[in-house]
Design a protein around this nucleic acid. Structure first.
Length: 595
RNA sequence: GCCGACAUAGCUCAGCCGGUAGAGCAGCGCUUUCGUAAAGCGCAGGUCGUCGGUUCAAGUCCGACUGUCGGCUCCA
């Protein structure tokens, strides 16, 4: 699981490989960057410089501190070199000669890479007097390197291991066409505008402060309302699918976490124990042991399976301070968790049920596109995985079968399964094309053993149930963060904390405004009155900025005819409507969860 | 935790080469009673993240710490 990227990255430096034209371009940019840095900062030692999703980076050890302010200078140097129209020339050296080159050039990281290459010649590229060991391929002339921008600088560990020296990583984005680069930069701008931390503050959705603990979320009224609405919907969907709800404690005796294996396998993410009357307790990092406790309450019969236990369970996991990030990465969060205990015969139907409810979620929250991964064990290293070949084969083939029967395209990832079972992960694509992991459906062959789970079958013998662990939205905190950015804060009517804001033209119409608000509230809608002593234009502007779906203007005309002047967020004036007609329209939108 | 940057009013930000703080918005008050994205005037609001150092004098220079941001690592 952990060595995968490392091997990939280094394979790239020597193994023959196929890159697409745009990947080749991006990889060439990495070398252009390296040559610029070598020029500006003599003595720089180079690590690796791969292409990444929208561009490239290069990890280097630069002898002087370099900050983001130096990027324009480096970028300029890159453009200068690129314009020189240098040829990228490839040449090969024998291993010993390559090592000699690395020693002479003081390129220790390259030497390390060469040492990892078992045999064969080593490939080098040279352009503009700069030589770098690299498998390539590259574009033929530097003049093809045009549309790029250096975007970030950061620390990165050599070979992604925090025991190794830290290098400076410079990131850039690069595209074949100018328009693509511009589009991408615009997307980044748009992403910054949608930043959930910024919107969270502006719209008063949540707060995370040092005083109340880093990574611990205070849901403020607007955010709390949205969460409650999400939870209500979530519970309704579970109820109709035959789930039972649980509530379980936030702490448990350390002995429970010993039995579950968390103290052995999940230690790094758990908080220190606290003593209660001589017994040690720990905050829960997961809900599973409690759900198992409920299952184990008494002897189970095959007739009552499958049992589906669901809980919006709040868990606590230690995260290093540098890893915290708004709502996306926190120390206390609520999983939309469930554990299903079933037999082999019903496993397929249960997995299908999980995907079905997951798809309902994506559809409702407006994520039409998603990617699915099926993580299976590495059959060559079956001893690293717990459970018999037979159960693994059944489990993997069942997961694949469900995906296929539902016509869900998926990628099969060998060796990415957890040691205790295979899983299906789903990543949704948001409004500006970013990918977010949401759903995970995992089979667990470990905990049923550890807790000796059993049920009595039709044959009157005891059998081990199959345990499915699944979360659809992942965590409510993270999902809320994703949702804020997906909608850019413009929540649809069914989620909006305030659905309509009534704007009296002047104080004279406050009374009629109150009537309107009350009528809407009586119809089960969420309306508020703007009582400020401001002109209409100002109130309209504020309603827009507060991202309230509808603003209702009430003045003399409206008061006389018992109507409201309807203004839809972003779309503007829709004309006047009777209070009842508007209430109906709003209720309809809310009911149908119109986006 | 590591690398780099940053930390000034509730928010967004000015404050050059050191001379004991400034704007806009928000808030409050008064005037205004207004027709679809900002009416006018006034008031109040900060021991400039914390601690230490240099200096006659420190938001301003130096150091440490804390936090935030971009990454790394990890991951819901």
């Amino acid at each position: 699981m952990c060595d995968h990227t490392e091997n990939d990255e280094f394979a790239g430096e020597y193994a023959p490989r196929e890159l697409s034209p745009v990947e080749t371009l991006r990889h060439s940019f990495a070398h252009l960057l390296a040559s610029a840095v070598a020029d500006l900062y003599p003595g720089t030692k180079f690590g690796t410089g791969p292409h990444v999703e929208h561009g490239f980076y290069y990890d280097m050890q630069i002898p002087v501190p370099v900050s983001i302010d130096d990027l324009p200078k480096i970028e300029e140097k890159m453009r200068e070199i690129a314009k020189g129209n240098h040829k990228f020339e490839r040449f090969m050296l024998e291993r010993e000669d390559a090592l000699k080159w690395a020693a002479e050039a003081g390129q220790g990281f390259k030497a390390e890479i060469i040492e990892g290459i078992p045999h064969g010649k080593i490939s080098f590229y040279k352009h503009a007097g700069f030589t770098d060991m690299c498998a390539g391929p590259h574009v033929n002339y530097s003049s093809k390197l045009k549309h790029f921008k250096l975007t970030a600088i950061s620390g990165a560990y050599w070979r992604a291991n925090d025991q190794n020296p830290q290098m400076t990583r410079i990131y850039g984005v690069a595209f074949e066409q100018k328009e693509e680069l511009e589009g991408h930069l615009k997307m980044l701008e748009e992403a910054a505008k949608r930043d959930h931390r910024k919107l969270g503050k502006e719209l008063e959705l949540f707060q995370i402060t040092q005083e109340y603990g880093g990574g611990l979320v205070l849901w403020m009224p607007n955010g709390a309302f949205i969460r409650k609405t999400i939870e209500d919907f979530w519970r309704d969907e579970h109820l109709r699918r035959g789930y039972n709800f649980l509530f379980t404690p936030h702490v448990a005796p350390a002995t429970l976490w010993d039995r579950s294996g968390h103290n052995q396998n999940y230690r790094d993410s758990m908080y220190s124990p606290m003593e209660v009357e001589g017994q040690m307790y720990q905050l829960k990092p997961m809900n599973c042991p409690f759900h198992i406790g409920v299952f184990n309450h008494r002897q189970r019969s095959y007739r009552e399976l499958p049992l589906r236990y669901a809980e919006l369970g709040t868990v606590y996991r230690f995260e290093r301070s540098g890893a915290l990030h708004g709502l996306m990465r926190v120390r206390g969060f609520t999983q939309d968790d469930a554990h299903i205990f079933c037999t082999r015969e019903t496993l397929e139907a249960e997995i299908a049920g999980c995907l079905d409810i997951a798809q309902t979620m994506y559809q409702t929250f407006g994520f039409p596109d998603y990617k699915v991964e099926l993580s299976v064990r590495d059959a060559k290293n079956s001893k690293n995985f717990l459970g018999s070949d037979e159960i693994w084969e059944l489990a993997e083939s069942t997961l694949a079968k469900v995906l296929e029967s539902r016509n869900i395209p998926y990628t099969r990832v060998e060796g990415e399964a957890a040691f205790y079972g295979p899983k299906i992960d789903v990543k949704v694509i948001d409004a500006i094309g970013r990918v977010w992991q949401l759903t995970t459906v995992q089979l667990d062959f470990n905990l049923p053993e550890r807790f000796d789970l059993g049920y009595i079958g039709a044959d009157n013998a005891e059998h081990r149930p199959i345990m499915v662990h699944r979360a659809l939205l992942g965590s409510l905190e993270r999902f809320f963060g994703i949702l804020i950015e997906h909608y850019a804060g413009d929540f649809p009517v069914w989620l909006a904390p305030v659905q309509a804001k009534v704007l009296p033209l002047s104080e004279k119409f406050l009374d009629y405004g109150r009537d309107v608000v009350q009528s809407l509230r009586n119809a089960g809608l969420r309306a508020e009155l703007d009582v400020s002593d401001e002109k209409l234009g100002y109130k309209v502007r504020r309603a827009e900025m507060e991202k309230v779906p509808y603003a209702l203007v009430v003045g003399g005309r409206e008061a006389e005819t018992r109507t409201v002047g309807v203004r839809k967020r972003k779309d503007g004036d829709l004309g006047s409507m009777s209070i009842e007609a508007f209430a109906e329209r709003l209720a309809d939108e809310a009911k149908n969860k119109v986006r």
